[in-house]
């Protein structure tokens, strides 16, 4: 479904992503792991062009994303769910509006949008909090709203950018549970950037390890952590063992 070739992104003198190649099949759950600053987030932001890559090619269902005009790009983005590390909710809107507003703006009738939003909220267990504002929710709840917002547009591709990185350890679990449930029950293609090894082992069809902007190892979770070939993989192995 997704094919990335020679992807490159540089910030000043720092090369964030250095010639990454990646293939993701439809319905596959790919977990990207690696040390902080290795280019994981930059890479998945390049997929929907929240970050413009300097070079390379991104193909979704054979269509080049980098050559899309503004209108086509927006249409593409509506088919991609993106969950941010910092939740990125609209502070002035309540939970329901946060989940449905982009649907309405995309032309979905308000009633339909509301129904889809409520359904998405139900999936993340927040159906009773639809009138609350983000400021009145816990971090975990806010992230679940973010997930519901991404799900509401029925995406063909879900991009998860370290969804638990900003959460307290006690809140991480509730988010991971929701994510695990979603991955298992839906057939959506997902690319998840995370440091949660246990979660990766549970949900990933394939794990990709990155270091210094490059893919250093990839494979099934069992293969990667049983016999790691890269330094990063070995570190993760030691982490699991401990």
């Amino acid at each position: 479904m997704l094919k990335i070739r020679g992807l490159r992104k540089q910030y000043g003198k720092h090369i964030a992503v250095d010639g990454v190649d990646l293939d993701v099949r439809r319905g596959e759950t790919v977990v990207i792991m690696g040390p902080s600053g290795c280019g994981k987030s930059t890479m998945i932001r390049c997929v929907n062009r929240l970050t413009e890559p300097d070079a390379g090619e991104i193909l979704v269902d054979g269509k080049s994303i980098l050559s899309l005009d503004d209108q086509s790009l927006r249409e593409f983005r509506r088919t991609v769910g993106f969950v941010f590390q910092q939740f990125n909710l609209i502070a002035r809107l309540n939970v329901l509006d946060n989940v449905m507003f982009h649907l309405v703006l995309a032309g979905v009738p308000r009633e339909q949008a509301e129904a889809r939003a409520r359904k998405a909220l139900a999936k993340v267990g927040l159906e009773s909090s639809e009138h609350k504002h983000p400021a009145n929710l816990s971090g975990g709840e806010q992230q679940r709203v973010g997930i519901a917002r991404a799900l509401a547009s029925n995406p063909q591709l879900m991009l998860w950018d370290e969804p638990t990185a900003s959460l307290d350890p006690i809140l991480i679990g509730e988010v991971l549970d929701v994510m695990e449930e979603l991955v298992r029950t839906t057939n959506t293609t997902s690319i998840i950037v995370t440091h949660e090894v246990g979660f990766a082992l549970k949900v990933a069809d394939r794990i990709i390890l990155m270091d210094k902007g490059k893919v250093v190892e990839e494979g099934s979770p069992r293969a990667i952590f049983a016999d790691p070939q890269s330094e990063v993989g070995k570190k993760y192995q030691r982490l699991i063992a401990s």
Partner: peptide
């Protein structure tokens, strides 16, 4: 400006006018 909200708007496929009007 709330950069995270604008970023969310972009990720959700809103155009610039919608980002301005709604966010």
């Amino acid at each position: 400006v709330r950069a995270d909200e604008i970023m969310a708007g972009l990720a959700l496929g809103l155009n610039n006018a919608q980002i301005m009007h709604e966010i």
